[in-house]
Amino acid sequence: MLGQRELEQAAVSQEDLPRRTFDALLDPISTDRSPVDPALCQAVADSVGLASWILPKARVKQVIGSAKGDHGGSMALASHTPADAARMIRQVRTAMGSCNAFKPAFGFTYEGVTALPDPKLGDESVSFRLLQVLSSEDEKPLKVPVTVVLVRVGATLATFQAANIRRDGQAVVPRDVVDEQLTKLANAAR
């Protein structure tokens, strides 16, 4: 299990991928959970929000700058016990079976929750897409495609998220970031 310093060193950076920027998000180590309706969507909602519903031992969050032809995104690395990291992946898979839409206590509604094929990354992984519904009283709702990929590498859960604010197709999580991050995590876990 990686500690805070080790997790920070294992996080992908501009040094690893010079054509991208990585900006740290300051975040205390907390569960930072926002309740949703229906509650059966909680694990999905927490994944979208880069939250850890099980208190992590260490965590790093970053905004990923876009590169030519993609949407960039954000990511979180959370260090857990191996059992908790595996349980979190299982909880997302279970929620995907019955979660179609949800409304957080604070924030925008999400709809069209759709499981994607297992990306077969790390020790285990799960991926899904959904639409974030941005609405105001006077305007037609704006639906922003969002894609989330969760990967367990040992006791670390890596969550990658991309939103396509241009709405010119599906949001795509940057594969170069995912590949480089998983390599660094595997090396750090040795």
Rank of each mutant, 00 (worst) to 15 (best):
H80M: 10
S98G: 11
G97T: 01
L116W: 03
V126W: 03
M88D: 04
R90Y: 10
T114P: 01
Q42E: 12
Q14A: 15
S136D: 13
A45L: 04
V133I: 02
F106K: 09
F106H: 07
Q132R: 04
D27G: 13
L40N: 15
P38M: 09
L134C: 11
Q62T: 02
S47R: 04
V48L: 02
Q91V: 01
P28A: 14
P28Y: 07
G72N: 01
C99I: 02
A43W: 00
F102S: 08
M96L: 10
S98F: 07
S74N: 05
D118P: 12
L55F: 06
Q14C: 14
D118I: 15
Q91I: 02
P104L: 01
R20Q: 10
G65P: 06
L116H: 01
P28N: 11
K140W: 10
A43K: 01
R93L: 08
I54M: 09
P141L: 06
A83D: 07
L55D: 00
A39G: 11
C99W: 02
V92W: 01
S136W: 11
A39D: 13
S98L: 08
I89R: 08
A86G: 13
E15V: 15
P38A: 06
Q62C: 02
S135D: 07
V60H: 05
Q14H: 09
K61D: 09
T94P: 03
S136V: 14
I64Q: 04
A43S: 08
D16S: 05
F102T: 03
Q62F: 02
M75V: 06
P35H: 13
S74E: 05
Y110P: 06
D118S: 14
P35W: 11
S52L: 06
E139G: 11
T31K: 15
E111H: 12
I89P: 03
I89D: 04
D138G: 14
K140I: 05
V48T: 00
G49P: 01
V36Q: 08
P18K: 08
F106L: 15
E139D: 15
T94H: 00
L130Y: 03
L134H: 09
S30E: 13
H71Y: 09
G97K: 10
E137P: 11
P141I: 04
P117R: 07
T109H: 10
G97P: 00
Q91A: 04
T21N: 09
T94A: 11
A43Q: 02
V48N: 01
V126I: 01
Q42N: 06
L142E: 05
L134D: 07
V133L: 03
S79R: 03
D84E: 09
G122Q: 13
T81G: 15
T109V: 13
L134T: 07
G73W: 03
T114N: 04
G97Q: 11
D84A: 11
A83Q: 04
Q91N: 02
Q42K: 05
G49C: 10
